[in-house]
Measured scan of single mutants.
Amino acid sequence: AEIMKKTDFDKVASEYTKIGTISTTGEMSPLDAREDLIKKADEKGADVVVLTSGQTENKIHGTADIYKKK
């Protein structure tokens, strides 16, 4: 799966169907969080990951919607 910015995804959204939401939390780098989200998306058969939230304090927390091409 590839990560797309919401603004970029909005241009092609009609080509995809939302298949779920994924999240990651833990003591990790932003890059590790990104890789974890991609891994989870791949496991669910998603083609595209669109980040919906991200937070960093002591731990990273990120959520994303996942989509499959129609």
Rank of each mutant, 00 (worst) to 15 (best):
A1I: 13
A1P: 13
A1M: 06
E2R: 15
E2F: 14
E2W: 10
E2N: 09
E2L: 15
I3P: 02
I3Y: 06
I3C: 06
I3N: 01
M4K: 03
M4A: 02
M4Q: 02
K5P: 09
K5N: 14
K5G: 09
K5D: 15
K5M: 14
K5S: 15
K6L: 09
K6A: 11
K6P: 08
K6W: 08
T7F: 10
T7V: 13
T7D: 12
T7Q: 11
D8V: 04
D8M: 04
D8T: 04
F9Y: 02
F9V: 01
F9Q: 01
D10I: 06
D10W: 07
K11L: 11
K11Y: 06
K11V: 08
V12A: 01
V12D: 03
V12N: 02
V12Y: 05
V12P: 00
A13L: 04
A13Q: 08
A13T: 04
A13I: 06
A13V: 06
S14V: 07
S14P: 05
S14D: 10
S14L: 08
S14I: 07
E15D: 12
E15I: 06
E15N: 13
E15P: 00
Y16T: 00
Y16H: 00
T17D: 10
T17S: 04
T17Q: 06
T17G: 03
K18R: 08
K18S: 05
K18I: 08
K18A: 06
I19N: 01
I19T: 03
G20H: 00
G20W: 02
G20T: 03
T21W: 06
T21Q: 11
T21M: 07
I22W: 03
I22P: 00
I22H: 01
I22D: 00
I22L: 07
S23R: 09
S23P: 05
S23K: 09
S23E: 12
T24R: 02
T24I: 12
T25W: 11
G26S: 12
G26C: 14
G26N: 10
G26F: 12
G26Y: 10
E27C: 15
E27S: 11
E27T: 13
M28C: 09
M28P: 05
M28Y: 05
S29M: 10
S29Y: 10
S29W: 11
S29Q: 07
P30W: 15
P30E: 15
P30G: 11
L31S: 14
L31G: 10
D32V: 06
D32W: 06
D32N: 09
A33D: 03
A33Q: 09
A33I: 09
R34S: 07
R34W: 11
R34K: 07
R34C: 14
E35M: 13
E35C: 12
E35V: 11
E35L: 15
L37S: 00
L37R: 01
L37Q: 00
I38E: 03
I38K: 08
K39N: 05
K40Q: 14
K40F: 04
K40P: 01
K40W: 05
K40Y: 05
K40T: 09
A41R: 02
A41I: 00
A41C: 02
D42A: 13
D42K: 13
D42E: 13
D42H: 09
E43A: 13
E43H: 08
K44C: 15
K44S: 06
A46C: 03
A46G: 04
A46I: 01
D47N: 07
D47Y: 04
D47V: 06
D47I: 04
D47G: 04
V48Y: 03
V49F: 03
V49G: 01
V49W: 01
V50A: 01
V50C: 02
L51Q: 03
L51W: 10
L51Y: 07
T52P: 09
T52Q: 10
T52N: 12
T52H: 12
T52S: 10
T52L: 10
T52R: 14
T52A: 10
S53P: 06
S53N: 10
Q55R: 09
Q55T: 14
Q55E: 14
T56Y: 11
T56F: 11
T56G: 12
E57V: 08
E57N: 10
E57P: 13
E57C: 12
E57W: 11
E57S: 11
N58Q: 11
N58A: 11
K59W: 15
K59G: 13
K59N: 13
I60A: 11
H61M: 11
H61A: 11
H61L: 14
G62K: 11
G62D: 08
G62P: 10
G62W: 15
G62S: 13
G62C: 15
G62Y: 15
T63R: 06
A64R: 03
A64I: 04
A64H: 08
A64N: 02
D65R: 01
D65F: 05
D65T: 08
D65N: 06
D65V: 07
I66W: 00
I66P: 01
I66C: 04
Y67H: 01
K68T: 06
K68A: 06
K68I: 12
K68W: 04
K69C: 06
K70M: 07
K70A: 07
